[in-house]
């Protein structure tokens, strides 16, 4: 598996898109830092970019990479290698390549800015960590969708739908539920609903770390009320890790039963 991981990462890091992704974050972060000069504010601005963009790019890359490497995967499948090694290797390679672009793209401007001497370093680290975790979750989910759907159009459609639901629609539906059922106690519902969306989880985790309750919205407030900052962060971390486990297990389940 490690060899396949190594080559997938290497292959992707050499592609034009990885550089484009890196360049975008470099420009964006450097621009923000230059314009505001306040690390806390830049972290919040970047949070909104990361929460939308990381899942989108990971989903698109995941599904594209899976379909593009299909014939090569067949070549690997005919070699004396475990199926799970091939697919886990490819997925991790993809996630690591994308995470590298993200970490370098955001990390370099912050390092040049002198984040190591700034008290906001932990906020920055949490932001980066969430970006990486979201990349892992969504590239894994996209990879799994690709594995389950041989029809590319359908696969792409489902992957985009997944992103749309998680990153955009979910909050709207969530809010609608809160308004419709406002006469009922909704604390546990909203907690539950948040755990089911990794994008929301990430947002809450970053905001808890930033300690800005005004921006947290209802779910964040419930989270904080229930668990306080420490427990809230721990719970959201565990939930996010569980979210990574879902596509990893799914990829294994599908790979072992699929015909190529």
């Amino acid at each position: 598996m490690w060899k396949i991981l190594k080559y997938s990462t290497y292959d992707l890091l050499r592609s034009r898109w990885a550089y484009l992704y890196l360049g975008f974050f470099l420009l964006f972060t450097a621009g923000f830092l230059y314009l505001t000069g306040d690390v806390g504010k830049v972290v919040i601005s970047l949070m909104n970019v990361i929460l939308i963009l990381c899942p989108l790019i990971a989903t698109m890359f995941g599904i594209m990479y899976h379909y593009n490497s299909r014939e090569f995967t067949e070549l690997l499948l005919a070699q004396p290698i475990r199926r799970t090694s091939i697919f886990w290797g490819q997925f991790l390679g993809l996630a690591i390549a994308l995470s590298t672009s993200l970490v370098l793209g955001i990390g370099i401007p912050f390092l040049l800015y002198g984040i190591t001497h700034d008290p906001a370093i932990w906020q920055f680290m949490i932001l980066l960590l969430n970006g990486v975790v979201l990349t892992f979750i969504f590239s894994g989910l996209a990879f799994w969708i690709g594995l389950r759907n041989d029809n590319r159009i359908r696969g792409f459609g489902l992957a985009i739908l997944l992103w749309l639901v998680m990153a955009v629609l979910y909050d709207g539906v969530f809010l609608l539920c809160l308004i419709v059922f406002r006469e009922y106690p909704l604390d546990s519902f909203s907690l539950f609903a948040t755990v089911f969306n990794p994008v929301d989880l990430s947002r809450i985790m970053i905001l808890l770390k930033l300690d800005i309750s005004a921006l947290m919205g209802y779910t964040g407030a419930v989270f904080q009320k229930f668990f306080g900052n420490g427990w809230g962060i721990l719970l959201s971390t565990l939930s996010l890790l569980a979210w990574i486990a879902i596509p990893v297990a799914g990829i294994r389940y599908t790979a072992l039963r699929k015909d190529f």
Binding site: Y7, D11, R14, S15, S69, R70, E71, F72, E74, L75, A78
Partner: peptide
């Protein structure tokens, strides 16, 4: 086993 698949497509990079 040595296997030659039908379609030759490799990582383009």
């Amino acid at each position: 086993i040595d296997y030659l698949p039908q379609i030759a497509r490799f990582p383009e990079n």
